[in-house]
Amino acid sequence: MSIITPEIEKVDRSTRSIRYLEHGWPSDLCRWHAHEEYELHLITATRGKAFVGDYIGDFKAGDLFLTGPNLPHNWITDKVWSEPAPVRDMLVQFSHESVEKLAEGFPEFSQVLQLLQLAQSGIVFEGFNPTFARGHMEAIRDNKGAERILAFIRCLVRLNEHAEKKTLSASKLIQPEGGSKQARIAEVVDYIVKNFSEGLSVGQAAERAGMTEVTFSRNFQTVTGHSFVDFLNRIRIGEACGMLYASDEQITMISQEAGFKNLANFNRHFLKVKGMTPSQYRDTARKDLAPNMEQTS
């Protein structure tokens, strides 16, 4: 499925204003998709790659995200987890209209609308206590009627008070239609995601899209929020991260499998994207990995 073209999910809110869900891994619910509702999403087990709009990054157990309307998203657990996780995701979906009307009736609640504005690009709540996050989710899950709404409001207030909110997607992705330029860019993105290890120049990508290099580069930046080279390298680095802590393979081999021609080039790009060397990343990831694996057993 295209990283640009998400599956559109319809959420039935005819009998309830918010929807609670939880699921394990693997699951058919884990897919690249978008919907009109906001989604508060807590990862409770495993680790892997988060895709939110044009953002590609790592996630681990305890991470809490908030995505805005029509912002495509997916969380893909790395292959190091060979055993299924009974519960990997706890999430709540809700509409902008519900919160907006609440703010109209209770002006004190209007500050939460600023939180929802940030969520248009996706938010990860860095440093938010995972025990508290799970407690809020369980309160929403276990209550009914008005008590569920109160638990949900209490959660939103705490999130709004949390200082460390990191926005994720540089731009909301444009939905491709028909034979538009966006659709042709989407085809190139699909090719990159499936064939990231192959050599692909800007000229070849432009030819695949049926555009000049200048036009292609401009449209690619608009649709994805990244330059072609930056996007390709981010995909490759993301794949390399999974291989670094999922195997004992030598870093030289991993760099080649990820599509980098030489180790020095790989190290330079890895440091730029992750802020550490591949060996440092492997050591750090494996230190975090052990307790998370115990949590899922």
Score class of each variant (00 low, 15 high):
Leu116Trp: 01
Ser95Arg: 15
Ser110Lys: 09
Gln114Asp: 05
Gln111Ser: 04
Gln93Met: 11
Pro86Arg: 15
Ala85Trp: 02
Gln111Gly: 03
Val92Arg: 05
Gln111Lys: 00
Leu115Ser: 05
Glu108Ile: 01
Lys101Glu: 01
Leu91Met: 14
Leu91Glu: 15
Gln93Asp: 01
Lys101Asn: 03
Gln111Ala: 02
Leu115Val: 01
Asp89Trp: 03
Leu113Ser: 04
Leu91Lys: 15
Leu91Ser: 15
Gln111Ile: 00
Glu104Ala: 00
Glu83Met: 14
Gln111Val: 04
Gln111Thr: 03
Val99Phe: 05
Ser98Cys: 08
Leu91Val: 14
Lys101Ser: 02
Val92Met: 05
Leu102Arg: 15
Leu118Ala: 06
Leu116Gly: 06
Leu113Phe: 09
Val92Cys: 06
Trp81Leu: 07
Asp89Leu: 01
Val92Ser: 08
His96Trp: 08
His96Val: 06
Ser98Leu: 08
Pro107Tyr: 07
Pro86Tyr: 11
Glu104Gly: 01
Trp81Gly: 00
Arg88His: 07
Pro84Gln: 00
Glu108Phe: 03
Lys101Tyr: 05
Ser98Lys: 12
Val92Ile: 13
Phe109Cys: 05
Gln93Tyr: 09
Gly105Cys: 00
Val112Gly: 03
Arg88Glu: 15
Val87Pro: 09
Leu118Glu: 05
Val112Glu: 00
Gln93Cys: 10
Lys101Gln: 05
Gln117Met: 02
Val87Arg: 12
Gln93Val: 11
Leu118Met: 07
Gln117Val: 01
Val99Cys: 06
Pro84Phe: 03
Gly105Met: 08
Ala85Ser: 13
Glu100Cys: 03
Phe106Arg: 09
Gln111His: 05
Asp89Thr: 10
Leu115Thr: 02
Pro84Thr: 02
Pro107Ser: 10
Ser95Phe: 10
Phe106Lys: 12
Gln93Gly: 08
Pro107Ala: 08
Phe94Val: 06
Arg88Gly: 10
Val92Asn: 07
Gly105Gln: 01
Gln114Asn: 08
Asp89Pro: 06
Val92Lys: 03
Leu91Gly: 13
Ala103Met: 02
Met90Val: 14
Ser98Pro: 09
Glu100Tyr: 13
Arg88Cys: 15
Trp81Cys: 09
Leu91Ile: 13
Gly105Glu: 13
Glu100Thr: 07
Pro84Trp: 03
Ser98Thr: 12
Glu97Arg: 14
Val92Tyr: 05
Gln117Arg: 02
Pro86Asp: 15
Leu118Arg: 06
Ser98Ile: 07
Glu100Ile: 03
Gln93Phe: 05
Phe94Pro: 03
Ala103Phe: 02
His96Cys: 08
Gln117Cys: 06
Gln93Ser: 12
Val87Gly: 12
Val87Asn: 06
Lys101Ala: 04
Lys101Cys: 03
Glu100Gly: 04
Pro107Arg: 07
Glu97Pro: 04
Gln111Pro: 01
Leu102Lys: 11
Val112Gln: 07
Glu97Thr: 13
Leu115Asn: 03
Leu115Gly: 04
Trp81Met: 10
Trp81Pro: 03
Glu104Asn: 04
Glu108Leu: 04
Ser110Asp: 04
Gln111Tyr: 07
Leu118Trp: 02
Leu91Cys: 11
Met90Cys: 12
Glu83Pro: 14
Leu113Ile: 08
